[in-house]
């Protein structure tokens, strides 16, 4: 039994060493250029959604764009530090509901699809963003 375990762990080690390192999420999103394009796609979608665009009426869009790129870069493991406010702070007073959140998620998915981001990477990013739901809604 013990030798079997040793054999097994050696085999696992060999497999692990043999594999080229898996690209991290930041790389799968296309690094800085990819994340910038994704953010622009998303902003374009928001701009053309009459049901949520009014939430951005008082938003400084160039600043919002810069911070979103930073945030996505940091979240996905890229070499950035998000310098904006916390999610609670930045959404206070907007009184967003679940429909706003749902629509934003759909716009993000469609932007990722348009950009040809692999399905697994799309889900990785969604998994990082979904927990922000309670920090964003009803504030």
């Amino acid at each position: 039994m013990k030798s079997l375990l040793i054999l097994l762990s050696m085999a696992l080690l060999l497999v692990a060493c043999n594999q080229t390192p898996k690209p991290n999420l930041y790389q799968q999103l296309g690094e800085e250029a990819g994340i910038t394009a994704l953010t622009d796609h998303l902003l374009h979608q928001i701009e053309h959604d009459p049901l949520i665009v009014h939430h951005f009426r008082d938003t400084d869009i160039p600043r919002f764009r810069r911070l979103l790129i930073e945030q996505l870069c940091e979240l996905s493991g890229g070499p950035c530090v998000y310098s904006g406010a916390t999610m609670e702070e930045s959404h206070t007073g907007l009184n967003l509901n679940t429909r706003d959140f749902d629509r934003l998620v759909n716009h993000l998915i469609s932007a990722m699809q348009q950009q040809g981001i692999p399905y697994g990477a799309q889900n990785q990013l969604l998994a990082l963003l979904a927990p922000m739901y309670p920090e964003v809604i009803g504030r």
Partner: peptide
């Protein structure tokens, strides 16, 4: 999300 091989 992202539970098994990147699938939900």
């Amino acid at each position: 999300l992202d539970a098994i091989a990147g699938r939900n």
